[in-house]
Design a protein around this nucleic acid. Structure first.
Lengths: 190, 190, 190, 190
DNA sequence: GATGAATGAGATTTCATTCAT
DNA sequence: TATGAATGAAATCTCATTCAT
């Protein structure tokens, strides 16, 4: 008797992401997902109790992934601005490389699938970002406005930028990335 | 003889907006919409050929509405910054007061409902915003970065701000609005 | 106040015939008929209590028409065979010229629309055909087989011939008509 | 694992035939068919993409069946007339025993369900009948009239005879069958 | 565990009929 | 009478989920 197969979960997640990016959350069925993942429909139910659970699990995974990646290489000992820019670039890279996840999370947010619990957990994962901003504020480098406001402002802007970049087919060269960063920095800096 | 009633289209649109905001695009059925609008399901099909057409029409209407409202009171003869702020406030007000439309449009964008044609038309309506930004750039008040980038940056940030505001239940007082505007302006200003 | 308009009934009948010939009885709706007839759907219900009544009335009209036409020019004083051929030609002409009626009646026969009463009346209208055949039998010109059998044989064959002719686009010249008649006559003749 | 079950297709076909014979093509719904076949409505869609496909498939199956049965026991080495009568009897037997198929095919022919392709294929299956008639013509036993005409004449007549027989409740005894055959033969013979 | 046919509740859509004008 | 919008029952079809293999 085989055991549950982690590789299969990855297949399922990737299938779901691809399809949601292409057809939107409301256009994706369990049948679509299984077909795309190369497994039988019934098998989906071996790994997830139902569609809701699948979506919630994927949402949580994406969210976790996005946070984890963001702080790669961040060293709080080093000065703020280069550390901040490092994280900013991590986020940008993540959003560009995992564009499907970005879309998926956006689609989910207002859907009836995501439970309060999942939403809650997602919020909790924001803590390091708040901490980062607060450090900048403490060091007088970042505006003293409401921290959540600043964060949301930055992330919202980045999201839209990434979508725009993706759809317009522009490749972001270094100079374009830098001028984009400057927009963010100028907005936030004290 | 009974005549087709434009008021009924408004009822249908409002019902759809309300429901999509509450349950997400994927959770709303034609039956839900008709019930909420206080008409028979069949009547929906008197006004729209199908669900697709209804969604597309509503999307177009929201988009048009949002643009029209934005430029209310704008006078290109007056200096740039106050005019810009006027528009910024219009947008903010629209997004807050018509929050359901904001959510609806976001939900739609990646759905299988919106056709290429509808997307196209939506894009064309952005022209006045581009013109506004270009004026600011010509007057050396706005960064010389790619105009689309600047716009997207601003609108993405505003969108997220509004969502945050809405869900956190904060009421935006004048000072909070102003500091939010400053974020945008500092980002964009040359 | 206008009175019911006989011309409108003709329009309705013609619309129904045309549509049934094109799309089959199961593909025709009251909306289709009214549109084709150039009147409002509601108006259909001024002239007929419902779809059933409309179909039954049209069926009866077609049936009556087909019989009436068949005996045009028939004089029972004259010898049998030329009289018979005259009728045969009348039937052929009717079926070719009113092909839509032929199709309509065939479609109706096994439909749930036609009531027992309508079917009954249709049967009664066959009496002159029976009489004709019986005369031929009495004069020893026609086989002594069951009269109904002979009739059905002839009419079934003609029906199929007309359909074949119609769909193949062949125009029936005199010689082709004659050889077709010979088939019938040879079958029936004593 | 459950496998698709050919027996289920037979059940579906039989249910559809029975219902169409009873209520006419326009009166039969997918729900009716599934109920009669003893399966869930959704299951119909496992076997057929939609109502159209079901009807077309059934039409094709009936047509094929009717042709196959007709030539059972036919040996082209033997003299023409007994071979012809053998086939004639096969056809008669088929039409009487599979009366529902006869009605179904008639109902379908002018319906919006049958596609041009299906019609085409049905026509191609007529080839052996043409060949048979041509043999009779070559042997100077059958009239030299257009082959299609002769065929259509015979089949149309038989069709109507069978319908008449069925509805009148007459049982065809040998002598009645023979006199019916004589009608056909006298019509066709040179 | 893996499969995919089977299910049936529910979604979309159609359409005969009614009704207000 | 004539109109065509409005209705809602019923038809077609979809799809999350179950189940037999």
């Amino acid at each position: 008797m085989k055991l549950k197969d982690d590789k299969k979960i990855v297949q399922i997640f990737q299938a779901a992401l691809k399809l949601v990016a292409k057809k939107g959350l409301s256009g994706v069925t369990m049948g679509d997902i299984s077909r795309e993942a190369g497994i039988a429909t019934g098998t989906l139910y071996v790994y997830f109790k139902g569609k809701d659970e699948l979506i919630n699990a994927l949402f949580a995974a994406c969210r976790e992934n996005s946070v984890q990646v963001s702080f790669k290489g961040y060293n709080p000992q080093l000065p703020f601005k280069p550390g901040f820019k490092n994280i900013w670039l991590n986020i940008l890279r993540y959003k560009l490389q995992h564009f499907e996840e970005v879309i998926f999370m956006e689609q989910c947010y207002h859907s009836p699938f995501i439970t309060a619990g999942t939403r809650e957990k997602a919020q909790q994962l924001s803590a390091p970002f708040y901490a980062l901003m607060e450090r900048g504020q403490k060091e007088q480098l970042i505006k003293q406005t409401d921290t959540g406001l600043l964060l949301i402002f930055m992330l919202g802007a980045m999201n839209e930028l990434v979508k725009q970049t993706h759809y317009s087919g522009i490749t972001l060269n270094r100079s374009r990335i830098n001028s984009t960063f400057d927009l963010c920095w100028d907005a936030l800096k004290a």
